[in-house]
Structure formats: C-alpha cells, structure tokens
Amino acid sequence: MVETFLLVLLIFMIIGSIIAIETKNLLSSVISCGIVGAGVSIAFLMLGAPDIAITQVVVEILILVILIRATITIDNTGIEAHWDTFSVVSSLIFFGLFLVFAFLAVQDLAPFGKPLMRVSQQYLETGLQKTGAANIVASVVLDFRGYDTLGEATVIFTSIVGAFVILRRRGRKARKEADTEKVGILTEEEIREDYEEFRE
C-alpha cells in the first residue's frame, strides 16, 4: 500500500519537475519546484520520518521565499531563445547511458522494505538506556554521531559568512577611493568612520 502511494507521488513529482525545467516564465518554474518539495515531504511522512518531514516543509518554504524575493523583481524573459546544441545533445546521451547502468546497479541493492541494519539495530536496542532520550533520531544526531553534526554546523557557518562577504556593499577598492555615498549593510560604523576621516 505504501509502495503504490509512493509510486503515484514519484510520477507526480517527475511531471512537476518537467514543468519546472521547460517553462519559460520564471515564476511558474519556481512554484513548480515548490510542488516537488511538497511531494518529497509527504513521501518522508509515508516512509516513517516525521522530523525530516517537518524540516523539509519549512526549508522548502524558505527556499521559495528567497528565490522569489531576491530575483523575480528583475525582468529577464527572452533568454532561452536558441539552444546550445552541443551541451543538450551530449547531456542527453550521457544521461541515457547513466540510466541504463543505474537500472542494472539498483538490482544489487537490498530489496525495498528489508534493509540490512547492522549498526542501527544496536542504536534501536540500547538508545534509551545509553543516552536517556526517547527520540532515537535525536540521540543518533547529537550523541552517537555528534561529530558529524559539528562538521555540519561548520559548513552552515562558513557558507553564511561567505554570503555576507559577497554581499558587502563597498569593497576594499571603493572604500579607499571613497567616491560613492551609498550606505552598506552595517551602516552606523561606516558613517562614523567616514565622518572622522573627513574631520581630520
């Protein structure tokens, strides 16, 4: 029963992604990407992962808001007028080959519904007794595999700091020449510095 429901959801998601890829209007494309994300969240709920489903819904909403807010105010139709023949044809050939080999490789995985759980069986049996948490996924994320969470916090921190450095309004060159008067994101300090330089 779960398998047929997942099959219908996957076909729905593939149709949604075809619409997202081929349509010319950017707003429809972003909204179809949201449809794929909502389908993925329902699939997570069917597969027995409720906290992943919560996280996926909220993150997908933020993805839609960021994409629409930051870029759709700029008008950019008329870009896809002509194909780049080489990249389209070569990518189709390579992905056809990839799918043939993927079909053969997928036969070697464990059948759907009977996973080999060599390590996780011990997490399920001794999780409550060793850590005291009732949510086994939380105990795996933060206690048994806490080092991976440390690495993940580092990756998020680095990418956010990198995004801030890219979005800085006045780079170092403009600050030396000081020919613009536009104000940066951290406004107060820069205004005070410029004012003190001007007074000297």
């Binding site: 933020l62 808001v65 960021i66 807010r69 930051a70 870029t71 105010t73 939380a138 933060l142 806490g146 969470t149 916090a153 998020i156 921190f157 956010i160 995004a163 801030f164 979005l167 309004r169 994101i185």
Partner: peptide, 24 residues
C-alpha cells in the same frame, strides 16, 4: 545542544535573508 543549534540557525537565516533583501 538543541537550544544552541536552534539559536544559531535562526540568527544565520534571518541575517542572510535581510542581507539579500537589502541587496535586491
């Protein structure tokens, strides 16, 4: 740890959203 990660993710995502909106 849940509280620490929750505060970290909140402030990061809010700050980057404000920066993108101002820059946009």
């Amino acid at each position: 740890y849940n509280i620490i990660i929750g505060l970290k993710v909140t402030s990061s995502l809010f700050a980057i959203f404000i920066a993108l909106a101002i820059f946009g």
